[in-house]
Simulated scan of single mutants.
Amino acid sequence: MVDLKLIQEFVKSRMGADHSGHDVAHIQRVANLCAHLLAAHPEADHIIVLAAAWTHDILDDKLVDDIEPVRQRLLVTYTAAGLTEEQVGTITEIITHMSFSKNLKHHYQLSIEGQIVQDADRLDALGAIGIGRAFYYGAHTGAPMFDPQIEPRTDLTKKDYRQKSPVINHFYEKLFKLGDLMNTPEAKQLAEQRIQVMQNFVTEFKAEWEFKS
């Protein structure tokens, strides 16, 4: 039997002090969204999905300076939790290739388990929560909220994507695009609702920013 709590405790010890919007609360929401999506996909391995959901940010190079020691501790934790070598390989494949930045120039075809985790992670970047996280991360990196003189970027590489940009531009560069990138019908439906919330917000934000008596 796999002990998911062991994996969860390891992640909490690593991400508990995060102030970039990739904290334990984010991870828990992603896991909850995965559980929702799994209800429509009984063919998916629940253990792989939930283990990947809990560890999907643990090796993110924008959050971790020295990845290799963390990778080794993660592998030890996977094994101690009772995951098989095959399961670890599948989970590693998911968390290595699911991010938006990794798929800017090459679209990785993920397993159904990977598709569910990727959808859940992207859904948590949308809606009211997504708005909050976008500004939270912008403040974390020192990005300005908005600059009408700076146009949203197009045809981004990973290097370009990691460069500081106004938060409002991030909605056009990434967030508004996520609906078309969802894998499952259930995620597409949720994304449509959440993107509408963000579009309304951005319209109101710009109107207030440009307000003149």
Rank of each mutant, 00 (worst) to 15 (best):
Q193V: 15
D124K: 02
Q189C: 11
V117K: 01
H19G: 08
V167A: 00
A39P: 00
R153P: 02
Q28I: 10
E85R: 11
A35V: 06
A25S: 12
Y108N: 11
D160S: 13
S13K: 08
K102D: 10
I129V: 15
V11S: 03
I94N: 01
Q109F: 08
G21T: 00
H46M: 11
H41L: 07
D18G: 05
A128F: 08
I150A: 10
V70K: 01
Q189D: 14
M1L: 08
H22F: 12
F201T: 07
D124N: 13
F10K: 00
I67D: 02
R162W: 12
S13T: 05
D180E: 14
K177M: 12
H170E: 14
E86V: 09
A134D: 03
T154V: 14
Y78F: 15
C34Q: 01
E113H: 09
N200S: 13
P152I: 04
D60N: 14
D180R: 08
L4C: 06
A31D: 03
C34Y: 00
A207S: 11
F135L: 09
A125V: 04
L175W: 00
L38D: 01
L178P: 02
E192S: 12
Y78H: 07
K177D: 11
M1D: 07
H19C: 11
H106G: 01
Q109P: 02
V117P: 00
R133K: 15
Q149V: 08
V202G: 09
I116L: 14
K5A: 10
S99L: 09
Q109A: 12
P69I: 05
W209H: 13
K212I: 12
T154E: 13
I58C: 02
R71F: 07
D61Y: 06
L175Q: 04
A81G: 11
R133C: 04
G89D: 05
K158T: 10
L63R: 05
F201L: 12
F176V: 06
Q196M: 12
E210Y: 11
K159W: 06
I27C: 04
F135K: 06
D45G: 05
K188P: 02
A143D: 07
H107P: 04
P166S: 14
S99C: 09
F211S: 15
T96M: 08
I91G: 00
H22M: 05
M15C: 14
T184K: 07
K159Q: 13
R133M: 10
A51Q: 03
R162L: 14
H140N: 12
L63Y: 03
K212E: 15
Y161H: 12
Q8S: 08
K105C: 09
K62Q: 09
M182I: 12
L190Q: 03
M145V: 11
L175E: 02
A51L: 04
I48S: 00
Q199W: 06
